[in-house]
Design a protein around this nucleic acid. Structure first.
Lengths: 212, 212
DNA sequence: TGATTTCAATCAAACGATTGATTAACCTGT
DNA sequence: ACAGGTTAATCAATCGTTTGATTGAAATCA
């Protein structure tokens, strides 16, 4: 039935193992033997399918970018007409982003991998910026500009959008510390909802403040 | 004159090299030979002074925590009397934090190291949380509580403080991307001031919004 | 004081273990 | 039989650590 062909199975297992291990332990601290063991295959498979450890890393980065892109939606379909609607669209995207980044079951691996790429000056960082971060940030600036009545490409708007994204990201980066400080056992849809509520309130407060 | 004794000199050189290399390349990707070379000493010095690579890592973490603590001030000396003053103290701490984290000349190494610790589930993470993050977060919650008239240890206040910190942190984590997107060549006192202005505005907007 | 001992500190060299990569033999389905 | 995958075995290189020798400045003798 739906079982994949054997070679594809091995490939996907390796990519999945790589996203997890590279994301949580880092590229340098992850050995090819660990990768093969977690994928349930042989070390040599890495060289056979990806040319080597670096090739597997690049393939994993591509896979991660694709999955996040699927969650956030394509950057084109926005139609901001008036400030109120633009603010509503911003809130909707914010909530979608929070739900994925903070509570989605597959998010820990994906987010950890992405953060590792953002932090490390890797070769894939350029690709992530050009193909993913920049267009999406530009779209958010567009919405922010309409919502506040300011120029979408002004320095002020760009900084404000970065600040908003920073709020969300920290609840992923510092999640262990957040849990510990608040006393939560974990972050489910429930806790994620309350985080989203808070950040949405902040969003509207910031928009009002920046409105001329 | 003010020259340090030889053994202390070696110790400090190793810690300095470790903060830089561990922060920028990661623990696993940094070899003891690199560390010794950058410190201008012998490999064996690491084992002699710190018991090993892990010991040097722990010592560096302690040093980093101490330096950041010196910048943020001790968590005790706060005296929030009325909401307005509490908000003013929050803004002052925010600006001090931004100035250090974003533009201070020694900040890149320190910040990179700290971020690495936050991301990696290392052994020193517990120490960082208990001795540094928790007390300071508690102090900020105290101020936030007075400023907004809410209970300082409520879930809502804790989350709000985390969100505020997240804003600042991103301008360090994503600094390369911020520079690229806005078109800055770097972040000097000038650019840091404009970031601080924006985040201060956000701070007051959030406080007003959360005030009962 | 002058000779001797002691000890922390640093060094070059080498250790065993592990790394990523490679090889050649071996399946497995057609 | 044969091509596409997989395997165990092995490679040189590098890893963190350890070793034994050497240094120079205190400490302890005479």
């Amino acid at each position: 039935m739906g079982t994949e062909s054997a070679p594809l199975q091995t490939r996907n297992s390796l990519v999945e193992a790589a996203i997890h291990l590279f994301g949580h332990r880092g590229f340098g601290q992850t050995s090819t033997r660990e990768l093969a063991a977690r994928a349930g295959t042989n070390i040599a498979s890495i060289a056979y399918h990806f040319g080597g450890k670096a090739g597997l890393h690049a393939a994993s980065a591509r896979e991660v970018a694709a999955r996040i892109g699927a969650v956030l939606g394509s950057p084109e379909n926005i139609s901001p007409t008036n400030p109120t609607e633009a603010a509503a669209q911003l809130e909707a995207m914010l909530r979608r982003f929070v739900a994925f980044l903070v509570a989605a079951p597959e998010a820990p691996d994906i987010a950890a991998f992405m953060l590792r790429e953002l932090t490390d000056p890797g070769e894939v960082a350029d690709l992530i910026y050009a193909e993913f971060l920049e267009p999406r940030h530009r779209m958010l600036c567009q919405l922010w500009g309409v919502a506040t009545g300011r120029s979408p490409e002004s320095e002020e708007v760009k900084l404000a959008v970065f600040a908003m994204l920073g709020q969300v990201l920290y609840f992923r980066i510092g999640q262990p510390y957040v849990l510990r400080r608040i006393g939560w056992a974990g972050i489910g849809p429930d806790e994620a909802g309350r985080i989203a509520d808070l950040l949405s309130a902040n969003l509207h407060a910031m928009i009002e403040r920046h409105r001329t």
